[in-house]
Write a protein that binds this DNA or RNA. Structure first.
Lengths: 131, 131
DNA sequence: CCATTTACCTACTATGTCAATAGTTTAAAT
DNA sequence: ATTTAAACTATTGACATAGTAGGTAAATGG
């Protein structure tokens, strides 16, 4: 289940894409338009800046703006940054699958197939597809 | 992310399908074969019995057995019973989508499309496909 | 230069879920 | 009656979620 972190992040991206006017947008405006607590959004956009999705500009006239064009963001990239790996099971979320049962596991092929499908879906969708 | 409840449930089903011999199998045997705490499995199989996946037989010679043939169970049915709705977002997990933004939400079509894909995947897979 | 604006940072909290564990009771067969 | 095994009730520690509160740092307009 995608949590508010991932969902709000996508909404912030859409909001910025549709209200940019070339300049920075203060978080206060986004919070009001999206009806989301500004305090909570602060935590979320902080991670988005750290992850390279947004640029933050301090001081008067500051705010946030996209660092790329909307068609250059995949939804999968946004979700993985905010929610962690999109894996369906813990053993596939690890960098190396350390499960002792992996050689005999009768369900692993299904989870692998599923994860591939999910990955293709979200990395195929671009931010520009949602505008 | 699918939790141990769903994953263990599928493993119990597979174990029963492969070791039935027509009779009941005590949980102790399954727990030992699958290397899962019997106490924890008790909680899981209790819900599986309540949900109609298994039959439980008390007393000496008792245990658990499948109530249908393996090809008559879909993986989606097992997962939904153990994990709740397979929805990617909270608003689609409700029986009626009560989100006040649903009419203007720019992400809802994507979540709906994704959920349909997930549903088709897991309800198309049968227990017999994993044996 | 200074007040204002805005991002950025640290800490805290309430609630809920996950993955168990422990102990007791009921049901059925030998 | 004894044994076997399911079924039931309660509790626990760790972690994640969804926030809130308050303070610091940076940049700009006047």
């Amino acid at each position: 289940m995608i949590s508010t972190r991932g969902r709000y992040a996508i909404r912030v991206m859409i909001d910025l894409a549709q209200n940019n006017a070339g300049s920075c947008i203060p978080l206060k405006d986004i919070a009001e338009r999206q009806q989301i607590s500004k305090k909570y959004l602060e935590i979320i956009v902080k991670d988005m800046v750290a992850g390279g999705l947004l640029k933050g500009v301090s001081g008067k006239g500051g705010g946030y703006r996209l660092s790329r064009r909307p068609e250059e963001y995949s939804i999968g990239e946004i979700l993985e940054l905010m929610e962690g790996p999109l894996s369906s099971v813990a053993c596939l979320a690890e960098h190396q699958n350390t499960c002792p049962r992996k050689a005999v596991c009768q369900t692993l092929p299904m989870w692998t197939e599923f994860d591939q499908m999910v990955h293709d879906f979200f990395f195929g969708k671009k931010l520009s597809d949602l505008l």
